[in-house]
């Protein structure tokens, strides 16, 4: 296209000279000039994009196809295990990771400094990886969970689950969906979540489901870094300035009502634990409390004395009963995928 061959300097010059003394036409109306004209494959002399994707497309992020995170992995259901129960359990673990990941990713470019920007993005990436594997595991165990998409849609099952379910179909605990707040709120949320998830994954390595066991074994290594990161920042904020301590204590009081829900035994967890593929989070409570007490003691912070956030008609996050925050999060996270259900990415 001719636009691409135009000298940018002269282009700017003509745009400037057009202001005020020339009638706006398609070529002089700079405000409506496309900044990056789309390549036209019919152009005889080709475009600047030609050749970019020839040869090794793998070097271009946009040139790589979706990878089935479980490609070639044996997803046979262990004998005697109810596939739907296994899927429901995997979905709950996946949704915790997915929503926590999205919240942390919202810090990207907004963290107090570059190192923490990178740290939070890394933690988000680990959790996103866990979520992909777990969503794929859920979909393989019970395909009926996966939302139906238009015929021929290339969206893989893990993405259909992430981007095409409504809020009430998400099974995450409410702790992970609530807003990031200030840095102290994010650190408290990250600490409570990492402590609880760590304790579950440490037990899940013995799951009879080899996929869950493998995800857990790798997850433990990752969570070790996440929990240390959150714990160290908790200590730093507690022992930092008067203001950092004030914010930390306020954050702890704000987040604490969502802590007990992490240990509720939901039906999906009860059945999965009974069948030897999952972990009943109630069994981890004492251990997680002990780790937190250690952090509180070193930080010189008292365990908050505030009650838990109420269930709504007996239902909490695992039942699909969420706070308004999840709807806003999903609107942002899902909008592009939903606008292009047949899109190739």
């Amino acid at each position: 296209m001719t636009d691409l061959h135009r000298d940018p300097e002269s282009s700017e010059e003509s745009a400037r000279s057009s202001v005020g003394n020339l009638p706006k036409t398609a070529s002089t109306d700079v405000a409506h000039q496309p900044t990056h004209p789309a390549p036209n494959p019919a152009e005889a002399h080709g475009s600047v994009y030609d050749g970019l994707l020839e040869g090794d497309a793998a070097h271009w992020a946009f040139g790589t196809d979706f990878e089935d995170p479980l490609a070639g992995v044996d997803t046979t259901i262990p004998e005697g295990v109810d596939a739907r129960a296994l899927a429901a359990y995997s979905l709950a673990l996946a949704d915790d990771a997915l929503i926590a990941s999205h919240r942390l990713a919202q810090w990207t470019s907004n963290a107090p400094d570059l190192e923490d920007d990178i740290a939070l993005a890394n933690i988000a990436l680990d959790l996103l990886g866990q979520a992909r594997l777990l969503l794929a595991r859920a979909a393989a165990a019970d395909p009926s969970l996966v939302p139906a998409l238009p015929e021929g849609s290339p969206v893989p099952p893990e993405d259909a689950l992430a981007f095409f379910r409504g809020d009430q179909e998400f099974r995450n605990v409410r702790l992970v969906e609530t807003g990031n707040g200030d840095f102290a709120v994010t650190i408290v949320k990250a600490l409570l979540f990492a402590c609880a998830r760590m304790a579950v994954l440490e037990r899940l390595v013995d799951s009879r489901d080899t996929v869950l066991a493998a995800v857990a074994a790798k997850g433990v290594k990752e969570l070790t870094y996440h929990r240390d990161y959150a714990g160290r920042w908790f200590l730093t904020l507690a022992q930092g300035t008067e203001e950092s301590r004030r914010r930390l204590e306020a954050a702890l009081r704000q987040v604490w009502p969502l802590y007990p829900e992490l240990f509720d035994t939901h039906e999906a967890e009860r059945v999965a634990a009974e069948q030897g593929v999952g972990v009943d989070p109630a069994t981890t409570r004492d251990e997680v409390d002990a780790v937190l007490d250690q952090v509180f003691a070193v930080s010189g912070v008292e365990r908050p004395e505030v009650g838990r956030m109420a269930a709504v008609a007996g239902r909490t996050g695992r039942d699909g009963m969420h706070t308004e925050a999840l709807s806003h999060l999903l609107a942002e996270m899902q909008s592009v995928a939903r606008a292009h259900p047949a899109g190739q990415w």
Binding site: D126, R132, K218, G219
Partner: peptide, 16 residues
């Protein structure tokens, strides 16, 4: 095998 769960390079490794 992925180095980390979220390793974004798996598809690139496969293609290479």
């Amino acid at each position: 095998t992925p180095t980390y769960s979220g390793c974004p390079a798996m598809a690139a490794m496969r293609d290479d």
